[in-house]
Structures are given as structure tokens and as C-alpha cells.
Design a protein around this nucleic acid. Structure first.
Lengths: 276, 276
DNA sequence: GCCAAAATGGAATAAATATTCCATGAGCGG
DNA sequence: CCGCTCATGGAATATTTATTCCATTTTGGC
């Protein structure tokens, strides 16, 4: 790889750009490597930066940045920047502005609180997008779809998630049982080796859920856990673990990310079962 | 208002900018008015546009844009753009890139579905931020907090929202009753004139919720409805209506925005009751 | 309908920014 | 250690972009 052999074509999208960056970065000489690293870590600034800005950020002279643009397949910096400016979907500034306005209210005014919850929800979703483990979700889908029926366990703050999933699965004709704890009946006896269990729980983990997972494991059921990862007590051997980090606001957790995972699972299961 | 008397100081934030735009726009002559309108409707493009771009978009010559920048209090376009570029928190390109990558999978792969749900959730939250009615939320908070206890009604897909609210209110020591329909008991008899009712329902509106609201109205209870606005059957006389538009993905609705409103209400009520 | 004040458009100029080029230095194989 | 190739930095240049200025048009008051 030398500076002579540059790709003939420019990346046509930010994805293509990211891919090419990944491809080329390892074989690049020092200065160009610095450019690649800096650009990679500051993709959002490219649209609003000058050559000089980027050069300074990367600790290289402007001419190095120019060379970098060229080996990436662009005629120069301007062409590269055009890609970033066009693709830039926009941070919906109306949204941002409005959010600030809402937040201006007194600390406990409904508007200010709403702004916080909106922000927590959005942050959770964005984090989920970057952290989601597709492989784990594939595995989870297979295991849950393979069961005769699906047991849903989620109490306290996980209960809304479990109940929405129960609703979705029911709508798609997938047999599911929501373990609600209603009437203090011990529904866990219904779990058999043919079944699949989805346990949803977050710190502080409710004892009912942990017990239910232990029982299900003993019975030989397929188990998937939707939890917050860090040393979750349901992350036993043989359990497929899906982790979701939610952003809290005050004492209350946004459920946005958890719900997104739950719904994606539900629809994937429904599709796989061919019942939709 | 003439072009002579321009403000001495430049807005220091996008908020301040938006406020000033609002202030000044009405009294502006034709061309500058066009600039103001165009900029106001394209705040997200300012950071990545040139004077010529904006001028073309607004249908005015570049010099008009320059004058516009100056009457807004900036020394020129560059200074104004700097404000936009700095504030430009960024569309989290990692997030955007990752989302595209997820979506690349087959239509029903869990990853692709997850991307859709994440996007629907985020879109819902952003829309909520711009459309939320603070006054209505204030009113709703007062009415709900004033009741002896709060009845929560939400079935089918609204049930997760109602149940999370029940959880939150319980945690804050606010008396609340979740009308679950379990056991086919008619819990609605519990509603008295001293109470407040929060009805959560979306098209197709469940009959139970509509009936419950009608009964509560007859009993003289304070009623708040969290619904999707367009001719909702629970928007009766005397009912405080909070509208939330969710973005659907396929057959399933994101609950992100609805949950954000619900949680903001819950915490506002808890605070008002002084129990937190 | 005339006059003054304000607004406008476009061309001229200034400034910022991108891009090229080449002399120099570093690294590598023989 | 020499010679070759490739990488590098900086200065010179080209291009784009912002900004000013002023002649002309429009507007509003009398």
C-alpha cells in the first residue's frame, strides 16, 4: 500500500466511507494513520470542519489531510466533505431547541421532567444502537422460537416490558404465558423442557425472576435473559444473555431501549414461526 | 424597525437565536423576512451551508443574507455560522452509522428489526419534544394530584404504560389503582367523585377504557386522557386531553413517547404531593 | 405625485480555505 | 553504508466564499 495506488472511486455513502476507513487504516503510514484515527473518532465534525481544523486535531499539517482525502478515493477535501454534509440527516434542531426550552421550566414542572425523560429515552436508544449484539439476538430468537411456548417473566419495572411482549406475541399467534404473579399462584410449575423462557430483570433483581430462571434451568428449558449485564444473577450457564443499558433519570429508568429489544425479538420470533 | 437599529450583541446560544428570530421576524422587510423564514425552517442546514446556499434557498441575493446576519446581531455570516457549528452537538454519527449497519441485515433479522424499533422510538421522542403541550401537562398534573387516589386505565397496548405508571406511583407513595381487567371483576365501581382517573388509550380504542371514562364522568371524577388525539372517543367535555403521536413500525407501536409523558406525569404528581 | 428614507441587487473586493508542488528527510533493501 | 523509494512539511497558488459598497428601485408619508 503506497500513496500511489488510491482507489479509483469515492465512497458513495457514510457506510462505504466507514468500511473503507476500516480497510485502509491498518496499512497506512504514520501521518495518514493519524488522520484516519482522528477522522474516525470525529465523524460528526467533518461536515463542519476545515482542512486546517482537522489537521490540527490530528496533529498533522494540512497537506497530510489532503493526501488522506485522496487515498480515500476523493479528489480532495471538498469532495469528501460534500459526502458528510449531504448525508448529514440533521440533528433536528427544532427538537434540540424545543428540548432546551422545555427544560427551562422549574425543576419539577411537568415540562422540565418531560424533557429529561425524552432525553433519557433517546440516549438509551442511541446507546443501544451502538452496543446491540446482533449475534446474541439471533441466538435468542432461535431459542425462543424453538420452544413449544414462551414464558415471560418480568416483575416490577420489567413488568411493562413483559406485558407488551405478551401482547405482541398474542397478536402474532405465538403461544406465550405472562408470569404476572397475580393471585400468588405459582405459575412456574407450567414450565417444561420443551418450553422457552424469557426473563427480564434489572438491578435490584427481583427474587421471583431469579428463582424462576433457576427452576427453568433445572427443568431443561431454553432460557434467554434480558438484563443489565453487569453480574446479573440470571446470567447462568446455558442462558443466552441480552444486555441493555438504560439511562436513568432520577429514580426511574427509561424503558425505551429495553422495549425496542423486546419488540424486535417478538417480531423476529413471530416471523420465524411463520405466523405473521 | 429598520436596518439601522441592529442589536448590539450577538445571540450566545441557539435558544437565544431562536428567540431573537421570533422577535424580529414580524417587523422585517420582505427580503429579510424571506431569509428569516428560510433559516427558521432550516436551522439544521445553517452549520453546513454557504451564504450562497442559504440565499438560493430563500430566493434572495447573497447580500440580503449578509444583511440578515447583521440585523440578527452578528458581524457577518461567518460569526453566525460559528454559533451553529459549535452548538452542533452532532447527530452521533456512530449511532447513525451503526443503525444503518444493523438495518442492512435481511428484513426480518433481529438486527434489522431492532434498527427499525430504535428509529421509531427516537422519531416518536423527537416528535413529542416539538409537539408536547406543557400547559395541558400542568393541568393534568394538578387534576391528578388533587384526587384522593388515581385510577389508571389502559388495556392492550396501553397496558404496559399504565402498569409502569402504577409502579412509579407506588414507589412514590401515591395511592393508585391499576384497572387490569383481571378476573373480569368490574373494578370501575371503585371510582368516586373524589378520585382522579387517567385513561390511556389509542386507536382502536378499547371499549373498557371508553366505558370507564364515561362512568367516571358520570360520577364526577377528575379525568385526564392520554390518547392519540384525532377524534379520540375519550375526549369528552371536561376531560383534560394529552395527545401523543407515536411512530409505528409495522403493526407495533413504539411506546417511547407515551412512556415519557406517563413518567413525567408520575414524577410531577409525586413531587406535587410532596411524597418524594 | 413628489420627496425622503429605506431596501435591494449586483458587481467589486477582501478574506478564508483548499489544493498543488517540490525540496527535504526518513526508512528499507541490497 | 549507499542509493532508491516513499513520506513529509511548508510555502506558493488557485479557488471558493464572505463581505462591502453603491447605484437603483421601492416604499411610505405628505
Amino acid at each position: 500500500m503506497t500513496l500511489q495506488d488510491r482507489p479509483a472511486d469515492a465512497p458513495a455513502s457514510l457506510d462505504a466511507f466507514a468500511r473503507r476507513l476500516q480497510d485502509m487504516a491498518p496499512g497506512l503510514p504514520k501521518r495518514l494513520r493519524q488522520c484516519a484515527d482522528h477522522v474516525g473518532r470525529n465523524l460528526d465534525r467533518v461536515a463542519v470542519s476545515t482542512v486546517a481544523d482537522l489537521a490540527e486535531g490530528a496533529g498533522v499539517p494540512p497537506s497530510a489531510v489532503m493526501r488522506f482525502c485522496q487515498i480515500m478515493g476523493f479528489s480532495g477535501f471538498s469532495e469528501m466533505q460534500r459526502l458528510f454534509r449531504e448525508d448529514y440527516g440533521g440533528a433536528r434542531p427544532d427538537y434540540a431547541t424545543r428540548l432546551r426550552a422545555l427544560r427551562e421550566g422549574a425543576g419539577s414542572s411537568p415540562g422540565a421532567l418531560l424533557a429529561e425523560f425524552i432525553d433519557a429515552g433517546r440516549a438509551s436508544l442511541e446507546r443501544l444502537a451502538t452496543q446491540a449484539n446482533e449475534t446474541a439476538m439471533e441466538t435468542a430468537t432461535h431459542r425462543l422460537a424453538a420452544g413449544r411456548m414462551i414464558h415471560l417473566a418480568g416483575f416490577r419495572r420489567a413488568y411493562p416490558v413483559a406485558s407488551y411482549m405478551a401482547y405482541a406475541l398474542e397478536r402474532m399467534g405465538v403461544a406465550a404465558m405472562l408470569h404476572s404473579g397475580a393471585g400468588h399462584l405459582d405459575q412456574s410449575q407450567a414450565i417444561s423442557a420443551d418450553d422457552a423462557v424469557l426473563a427480564i430483570t434489572f438491578a435490584p433483581y427481583s427474587a421471583e425472576t431469579v428463582d424462576l430462571v433457576a427452576l427453568a434451568q433445572k427443568r431443561g428449558a431454553r432460557i434467554v435473559a434480558l438484563t443489565d449485564g453487569v453480574a446479573s444473577p440470571v446470567a447462568l450457564a446455558g442462558v443466552t444473555v441480552l444486555t441493555v443499558e438504560e439511562v436513568d433519570f432520577g429514580a426511574f429508568r427509561s424503558l425505551s431501549a429495553t422495549l425496542a429489544v423486546a419488540m424486535a425479538l417478538a417480531v423476529a420470533i413471530g416471523t420465524r414461526r411463520g405466523t405473521v
